[in-house]
Simulated assay, not measured.
Amino acid sequence: MHAPAQAHHPQESPGSGPGIAPTRVPHERVHQARELFSRDGAVILTGHENTSDALAVAAAQVIGDRLRELYPHRVRTSRDGTPVHLHADSFDVVVDIGGVPHRRRHPDEDLVIVQCARPAPHGGDSFALDAYAFVDGLTSTDPALSAFLTGSDVDLYGAWADLRGLPATPRIGRHVEFTRTGRRVVRRTDGAVPIHRDPDADHIHTQLGRLTEAVHDVEPSLPRFRLDAGDILVLDNYRCWHGRDGHTGERTVRILTARSSDAR
């Protein structure tokens, strides 16, 4: 028989480069969790009940009185799932309920909370990257890509323009920006496209492709970590990108995004 999934925690040690291996902390150690989150941009809380309520509790534990807005939690189940590449959660969805607009996602959500409701029998390990370190490294290894990320406007969700609920007005921004308080935002979304009729569209398409290639190239070197049933991964969505390996069998996670008082 195979060992239980919860006994398997591969490569949970810091590696070289921009990879992150979040520290596992019992959920009652609030001060330690906050210190690790501030230091690393990510932490895993253990011991919470395996329920959707636990995500809101985890957000309050790590962010405290800086927690501003919570968005509806969502459940994602994948069966024999293909890999999910590095990304930062970001979307802009407003729906009408009984004639009243309700925001379900925010383009500037700065907190992502992921609870493993059911781990995959095989595979499905997670990985994360310090995007600050990644883009800082590009200044010397790939100045052209660095200049694109910091200096070129794109339509952040243009590739998804036909989705209902997504605002018709293009959301224009750069991959690397700063909030009014000086906090750095590093975005990673598959929705980015050139602005309509941008004269530099060909260049932007090329750089978007090069960014995707660079992200995919770094993924194999990142340390892997496994979320057991009930474990909650808390991520600084402005700083960290995350993904997971492919898996066999069924895997279910609950996801909650939020904004703190530090968000844009």
Rank of each mutant, 00 (worst) to 15 (best):
S152N: 08
A192P: 04
I255S: 05
F178V: 09
A42N: 08
A192H: 07
L222V: 01
H205F: 06
G15C: 07
A258Y: 06
E12Y: 06
D96M: 14
D153I: 07
G64Q: 09
R226A: 15
H2Y: 09
S140H: 10
L222R: 07
A144T: 12
P10T: 10
D202A: 14
L129S: 07
G64F: 01
D89C: 10
T150R: 14
E219Q: 05
A60R: 14
H175C: 03
L222C: 10
V43Y: 02
Q6C: 12
A56K: 05
H216K: 15
T141V: 11
E28Y: 02
D96F: 00
A59W: 06
D108H: 13
T248K: 04
V176C: 07
R244P: 06
D40H: 08
P220A: 10
H247D: 09
E49K: 05
L145E: 11
T206V: 03
T82S: 13
D236H: 01
A60S: 15
A33E: 04
N237M: 13
D155S: 14
H196K: 11
R188D: 11
V100F: 11
V95I: 14
Q61N: 14
L227W: 00
H73C: 09
R180W: 07
P18C: 14
V176E: 00
G81D: 07
P167W: 12
T23V: 14
L156W: 11
W241M: 12
F148M: 06
G182W: 02
R29Y: 14
L129G: 01
A42T: 04
E109M: 13
H216I: 08
H205Q: 08
P14Q: 15
G64N: 01
G81A: 08
H48N: 08
S152W: 13
V94S: 10
G64W: 06
A60I: 02
P194Y: 04
A159G: 11
C116F: 02
L235E: 06
P167S: 10
R254I: 11
S78G: 15
